[in-house]
Amino acid sequence: MKPDETMRIAGEATASRLILGTGGCNSLEVLEEVIAASGARLVTVAMRRINPHASGSLLDVIRGSGATPLPNTAGCFTSREAVLTARLAREALGTSWLKLEVIADELTLLPDPVELLSAAEVLVDDGFTVLPYTSDDPVIARRLESVGCAAVMPLGAPIGSGLGVRNPHNIQLIVEQSRVPVILDAGIGTASDAAVAMELGCDGVLLATSITRAQDPVAMAHAMRHAVEAGRLAFLAGRIPRRFHAQASTPHEDRLELASGG
């Protein structure tokens, strides 16, 4: 069976269900290896003031790896900031695809649903393909879809926490109701977390720090690639129902009988 690696967002096929974030990555050489090992075809970038001392080009590394840069609005606290950042990103990178992120505060980095929805509406009207980073609230996810977002990206846990999927029930509710792809974004700590997200029926996973801050980022990138594929296959294969008691897998008929009885 093929691993079903292709994900479709806004009618476009992406040859990997793993979207790689570059947060926490401080070496372009390592990034190049990580992209190759993860198989990611979409790689997020933030927009920041130009750095005259920057050596090497992040965009060249991403494009040179056969991946497409996906700009985001990381660090924006208001709809207005996010909308301007999005427009700058579209102009700078020549893509209307956007990971929309509007956070509420620096302690939790949780999405601000009010500002997020407002920015999403403006940007969809402005022709962007909006992929919003959102909380695991099915109601907000539904609202984001209804204003025209091309996917919804609920968090598994706060950004950088590595706590995994804290509310699998909500993620399942979002998967069940959504007609756009659901991409679990944030909270992944290790490979099993990514597999869990995929087993819940998510179309993809977006992760950054679990790879970039792992002790061996390239090895973790390999692990994540396999975990996403394994989780997807398990979801498609259909797991057995959970049972409270054991259920013998071997029939009891035709067992031996001891001559001495008992």
Binding site: G21, T22, G23, G24, C25, N26, L31, T44, V45, A46, M47, R48, R49, I50, N51, L58, L59, P69, P71, N72, A74, G75, T85, L88, A89, A92, L93, K99, E101, A208
Partner: peptide
């Protein structure tokens, strides 16, 4: 004036 370009993040 704000002059921006892509940087690692997100």
């Amino acid at each position: 004036v704000e002059v921006l370009s892509a940087a690692p993040g997100g």
